[in-house]
Amino acid sequence: MTGLFSEVFLSALMFGAVTAAIPLLLAGLGEQMSEKAGVLNIGIEGMMLAGAYLGFVGAFYSGSLWLGFLTGAAGGVAVALIMALLCVRIGLNQIVIGIALTLGLEGLTALLHHFQFSRSYPRLPAADATVIPLLSDIPVIGPAFFKHHLIVYLALALVFGMGYLYRHTQLGLNLQAAGDKPAALDVAGIDVIKTRTIAVLTTGALAGLGGAYLANVGAGLFIPFISNGAGFLGIVLAMLARGRPVWVLFGALLFGVCLSLTTAMQVAGINIPTDVIQMLPFLAVMIMLVLFGRRASLPAALGIPYERGTR
């Protein structure tokens, strides 16, 4: 058992935790913006899958990871566009459309994968890491936190960018109002529909990016149903974070550790069925919800389509 806690193992565990946390972080940040603006985005799982598939396709055929991230984000936005059109513009039920989109994208990406890649299962080469000088020389922590792909650091920067956006910009306040009191925002002369559409499309871009990271950097290939509930975990993170991006980061890291531990235990050959280990992250959510659930506050107008002139 001593091998289990060696330096190499610990840093690999933490490296895995960060890798697993990034898609959750991006999904959580995206969902947070939608929820702030009053749209409960259950279709985020579908957006991640679209991002994962198109991201992989982009990276595979162009050979450039960055182009892959771009196509991934575009895939997420494409799905978000449908969601925005149906749920924001014409006000269809967000949960019904969200579930339908998730189901559809699960099927569609699996279908396309079957015809395109199922014979060869091509893989991408391992992503280049951006090594941060000096910091990466610290034992254990260095290789765990400072040898990731550049997009990881950008995602971390985004957390603070989002915090600034919500607190110090007009758009941030508009988003908040669109979720809490859309009628008031409308009276103030700001287009609620437009504000919410911006939020949903941003969610799509972030979820798509998260999906692309999952496929291109995390796994190195696309497999059907690759997101495996990551979008739903993102929804939980957004709900528990009470509108604060930093809390999404903490939550994502916590889950990342759980997920990474899952893989580590499998690799270490601990004799428990994988199903038991797979339950860990979800068990962690339930425990968190039981402990802190009361504090999960949600915007007042969440899930309610806005229509001018109705009460």
Partner: peptide, 14 residues
């Protein structure tokens, strides 16, 4: 693949 049924159901719903 059987997954096409998912696509079909989803489009019908929307």
């Amino acid at each position: 693949p059987n997954h096409f049924t998912l696509v079909l159901v989803s489009i019908v719903l929307i």
